[in-house]
């Protein structure tokens, strides 16, 4: 038994050296959801921007999507291309560049220019640090962590009966000047309303 256990342990450590990141098709489905959200969310018009500038989808932290967004690079929304960006997570940035606070990071302006920001689970401890400085920027923030909406996020994925569902905060959307269309709100399993503190649950 000890021998088998040791063998498995050694194998597990050596296995880390090869192979690439993996997540199951759960994130392929979530990627497709995110692509769909583009059709049901209106961003505030920006008179300074080129109407044909690319739509930027960004992931901050350990990217769980792997190659799931790849087919999107070939797709267009209207005449606009879709670009995928990834940003280092808070802890990683602290370890590598010694930057402890989100607001101090040099790529903050670049993050603020994104249309969609997916906050990976690796950022669980830093949700508020990330969301607070960008709460007024027109960014559709998305995650799949409990408490994300309460911390100021706009859309949060949940798994229900093996299926991907999402909940949304109209309050956070309003603050970010995003208009979530009724078709999308109707499909959400939970909507945090923008006026009062009350929660509407289906």
């Amino acid at each position: 038994m000890a021998a088998t256990a040791t063998a498995i342990l050694i194998a597990s450590l050596t296995a880390c050296a090869v192979g690439d990141t993996a997540q199951s098709t759960e994130y392929q489905i979530k990627a497709a959801f995110i692509f769909n959200f583009l059709k049901f969310v209106d961003w505030p018009p920006d008179p300074n921007a080129d109407p044909n500038s690319p739509i930027i989808i960004a992931v901050i932290g350990e990217n769980p999507f792997a190659k799931a967004f790849e087919p999107l690079q070939a797709k267009q929304v209207g005449d606009r291309q879709v670009l995928i960006r990834t940003y280092k997570g808070c802890q990683e940035l602290k370890d590598s560049d010694g930057i402890a606070r989100f607001v101090d990071r040099p790529d903050l302006a670049s993050i603020k220019a994104c249309h969609i920001l997916f906050v990976a689970r690796s950022e669980k401890q830093h949700i508020k640090d990330i969301l607070k400085p960008i709460e007024n920027a027109p960014i559709l923030t998305i995650a799949d962590m409990p408490g994300f909406l309460e911390a100021g996020g706009v859309i949060n994925f949940v798994l229900e009966d093996q299926k991907v569902r999402f909940e949304t905060s109209a309050r956070s959307a309003k603050r970010a000047r995003l208009n979530i269309r009724a078709q999308l709100l109707r499909l959400a399993t939970r909507v945090i309303k923008d006026d009062a503190e009350q929660t509407d649950s289906k």
Partner: peptide
């Protein structure tokens, strides 16, 4: 592309 491209053609 490996990531099941037809998913992107689906509705919510």
């Amino acid at each position: 592309p490996d990531a099941a491209p037809h998913l992107f053609d689906m509705s919510i």
